[in-house]
Write a protein that binds this DNA or RNA. Structure first.
Lengths: 106, 106
DNA sequence: ATTGTATATCGTAAATATACGATTAAATAT
DNA sequence: ATATTTAATCGTATATTTACGATATACAAT
């Protein structure tokens, strides 16, 4: 009697759900915005700009990374996070297809 | 030391996060698709088409309803769910603005 | 009035998410 | 070599989500 029967749905819907989940916390939306604005950004500055602890921000970054929406490259003692454009585009396209498919009627 | 400090973020990011959360389970994406295809649909048919129990589907419908993405009207002994277009458009627009704001760089 | 049908809600168990302090790891700088 | 800095991970507490059986509710039909 396991939980989260996500495997029973289509790949497209699973992917959409995973991306949506990645965006389902305002901190993560804010992080994406922030990274985009600077086009690249270290984690430290993010922590300074968010009302969350370093540990928590790091956790949110991990979620975004696992969803493929950002990537982080080592740069000396810090990590330079930036948006991973290919996945972001993929997500945007999937959403647009969903809306397109949904909207015609009515 | 409460949890989920969502109130510390902007209204826009909170809204986006709430909508994303509503889409963060494949069953709910599938429900939206299904409702859109028929433009209106009773819950019973949804249950028949989803690998989930009636109680669980009803719960997912509640989440979508609370996010404003669907509405349900009483129709005899059943409830006729359908997509709530104004909110769906609002969400689509908010997402497009986010992508637009994010994409310019790089 | 009783029965049947459709859907919501309740109760509950398990999984996942959120948050943070403390610690660790890894590179830089001294 | 040692100290400093930056970010990840660990441990832990609490909250929320997911799932379902059982029950309640509300209307329709008989």
């Amino acid at each position: 009697m396991a939980f989260s029967k996500t495997e029973a749905f289509t790949d497209v819907d699973q992917k959409l759900a995973l991306w949506a989940k990645a965006l389902s916390h305002p901190a993560r939306v804010a992080i994406l915005r922030e990274l985009a604005q600077r086009n690249a950004c270290i984690c430290g500055e993010l922590v300074a700009n968010l009302p969350l602890s370093q540990a928590t921000v790091s956790q949110h970054l991990k979620v975004l990374k696992e969803a493929g929406l950002i990537s982080g490259e080592i740069d000396g003692p810090r990590i330079c996070y930036c948006i991973h454009w290919p996945t972001l585009e993929e997500m945007e396209n999937a959403l647009n297809r969903l809306f397109k498919q949904i909207k015609p009627c009515c």
